[in-house]
Simulated assay, not measured.
Amino acid sequence: MNILPLNNCIAVPKELILLGRVLLITIGSVIIVDCAILMAFGKVNFGSVVPFLLGIVFVIHGIFWHKVIAFIHQYRWLLYFWSGLWMVFFIWLVSFGIFTYVLQQQIKQSTKSVPAVAAIIVLGSGTVAGKPTPTLAKRLDTAVPLIKTQPNALVITSGGVGFQRTRSEADIMATYLHEVHGVAFRCILQEGKSTSTEENLANSRAFLEAKGLSITDPIAIVTSDFHSIRAASIARHQGYTQPLTIASPTPLSTRYNAWFREYFAFVSGWLLGEY
């Protein structure tokens, strides 16, 4: 077995280094392509830019492994810095695992029977050609059983006018609920100005108060399963004392990709003081 030195103290099999390089290039390329597609559709945010840059670092490291290692070994401080970066990465990996576990528990909790609520807020998630995206349609479909079993609950569709759009998400969502599920327009209030989850919940507060309700009442928040932790955290930060997240399912083909991006979005929200 061929052995190559990784630093002055450690010798690593050549085959293991080759495997590591292939993994770095493969994982990095997948991340780059995924995030590039997201940014091409206007989703330029912390959750897409940071993984994109991380993917570039992985690919460069994998392709130029020997040159990178040779350069690092010229400076002892750089070797410590490089080792520290990998340690930070593995700590991040553990934190992502914890986030995934907590998210799974949150999703399981949301599938339990929902007690009586004062209002049902459905959060927007994008539209295409005047129709809800598949993700948004799932949220609306998930809200319908609750709307029909709790007819006295106030229903709010929340979402503003997107880039190069003429109709608000709230309007498109209300139309979908009416045309596909037979929910009467008169039963739906449309909050059509928000552009983020934080604004969704803040702007919906005025609708609640106009109907004599309060954010201290039990409020159902319908969103995608991967988004449930962040939505609940933002709601509590804004003063919602009894937010009940109702999680709509994410297709298996995109589920873990969405969870990965949501981790960064959750960190971004924390840095921005959203919760």
Rank of each mutant, 00 (worst) to 15 (best):
D141Y: 01
D141A: 08
K131N: 12
V155Y: 07
S125G: 10
L140M: 05
A119G: 13
A137K: 09
T133Y: 05
L146K: 02
L123D: 13
D141Q: 06
Q150R: 04
L154Y: 10
P151I: 05
I156G: 11
S158C: 02
T142K: 10
I156P: 04
T111R: 08
T149S: 14
S158K: 01
A119F: 04
A153K: 06
A129I: 03
V144M: 03
S158G: 02
K112F: 09
P134N: 08
I147K: 01
Q150W: 00
G124Q: 12
N152E: 15
T142F: 00
I147G: 07
V114A: 15
K138N: 09
T133A: 02
P132M: 03
P115E: 15
R139W: 07
L140R: 01
L140I: 04
I121D: 11
G126L: 00
L123V: 14
S158E: 06
D141L: 05
P134S: 07
I156R: 03
S113I: 09
A118M: 02
L123Q: 07
L140S: 04
G124P: 14
V128F: 11
P115C: 11
P151Q: 11
V122F: 04
V128L: 13
P145C: 05
G124C: 14
R139S: 12
K148W: 02
A116F: 01
I121R: 04
T111A: 05
A116C: 02
D141R: 02
K112Q: 15
T157F: 02
K112I: 06
S113T: 15
A119R: 02
A129E: 15
S158D: 05
T135V: 10
V155N: 07
V114W: 07
K112A: 14
R139P: 08
A153D: 11
A119M: 08
A129F: 01
V122C: 14
D141T: 04
T133L: 05
G124F: 08
T157N: 06
G130I: 11
L146A: 11
S113F: 04
Q150S: 12
V128I: 12
G124T: 11
T135Y: 07
T111H: 12
P115Y: 07
P151E: 11
I120N: 02
S158L: 00
T135K: 04
V122H: 04
T142C: 06
P151S: 08
R139D: 15
R139V: 10
